[in-house]
């Protein structure tokens, strides 16, 4: 990788200042995506601001009807968390299937969201659960956070500090692996929120995570795997690559949604 300057702030304000300080500065969380991109010379920040030593940026807390997860919490911690496992088992399950064991030991929730990789798993949970993203300066609704391919509502130098996940009545995530990278070729997160709203968030299929309106309305009418599976999803605007064209991805969305619904119903017994 190219040379860069390394900074290690001790607090969020200090980190924000360092990021604001220099135009080519970038925050380093777990580094799973950023360091890989730098090694392939696809990214070349002048300054890396390492968030790894900031106190209080990681951790999981149940706060009323919400699970608050610090931005620097690693996937392995979320996967192993008894609180998450009890309150939102689908989220623990999702975290436990990101990348591989070694990646889960380094990768973080905040890093994943800030990167907004179209094939990342977490965005599906954030959008599916209608979570809120807390930053050093504000709180952003999931709907407003994900803008486009690798693009979020974060302003330059703005840091994610935590994510608040409302505890749903039930939820499930089903992921279909891209065979090489093990990212989601398509991942579908189905949630029935505390207020009974059905939300279906899809990752991997489009340039950015999105809600599958046709499946949501089908499920609102009848919450069954058959209803989800029968919903039509348009291939318009979906991703195409050697591992699947837009038609394949569009076809997989209701197939996987139906499986997620089946899981939910099975769990409810």
């Amino acid at each position: 990788m190219y040379e860069f300057e390394y900074r290690r702030p001790a607090s969020v304000p200090e980190a924000v200042e360092m990021l604001r300080d220099r135009e080519g500065a970038k925050a380093l969380a777990g580094g799973m995506s950023l360091l890989s991109a730098m090694k392939l010379r696809l990214a070349s920040p002048d300054v890396l601001v390492d968030l790894g030593r900031i106190e209080g940026m990681s951790g999981i807390r149940l706060e009323g009807a919400e699970v608050r997860i610090g931005a620097m919490t690693r996937h392995a911690q979320v996967a192993a968390s008894a609180e998450v496992g009890k309150a939102i088992p689908a989220l623990a399950d999702l975290a436990g299937r990101i990348g591989d064991r070694q990646v889960r030991n380094r990768g973080t929730l905040g890093g994943s969201l800030a990167n907004s990789d179209p094939a990342a798993c977490y965005p599906a949970a954030v959008l599916g659960l209608d979570a809120r993203i807390e930053t050093d300066r504000r709180s952003i609704a999931a709907e407003a956070f994900f803008i486009d391919l690798f693009e979020t509502a974060l302003q330059s130098g703005e840091l994610i500090t935590a994510v608040r996940f409302p505890v749903p009545r039930s939820a499930a995530y089903v992921k279909f692996h891209q065979p090489a990278s093990r990212f989601a070729l398509v991942g579908v997160f189905v949630a029935v929120t505390g207020s009974g709203e059905v939300r279906v968030a899809v990752t991997g299929a489009g340039p950015v995570v999105f809600r599958a309106a046709s499946i949501e309305s089908a499920l609102a009418r009848e919450f069954s795997a058959a209803a989800a599976g029968a919903a039509a999803v348009s291939a318009q605007g979906l991703n195409s690559d050697m591992h699947g064209d837009a038609d394949y991805r569009a076809h997989l969305i209701p197939v996987l949604a139906a499986r997620a619904v089946a899981q939910i119903l099975e769990r409810q017994g």
Partner: peptide, 23 residues
């Protein structure tokens, strides 16, 4: 079932890393 080195019609390799070449 998995492994394929793919070139596009311009002669560029589509499977330049283990992110696309499925082992």
């Amino acid at each position: 079932l998995l492994e394929e080195h793919a070139y596009n019609s311009e002669g560029q390799l589509q499977t330049g890393s283990f992110m696309d070449y499925a082992m």
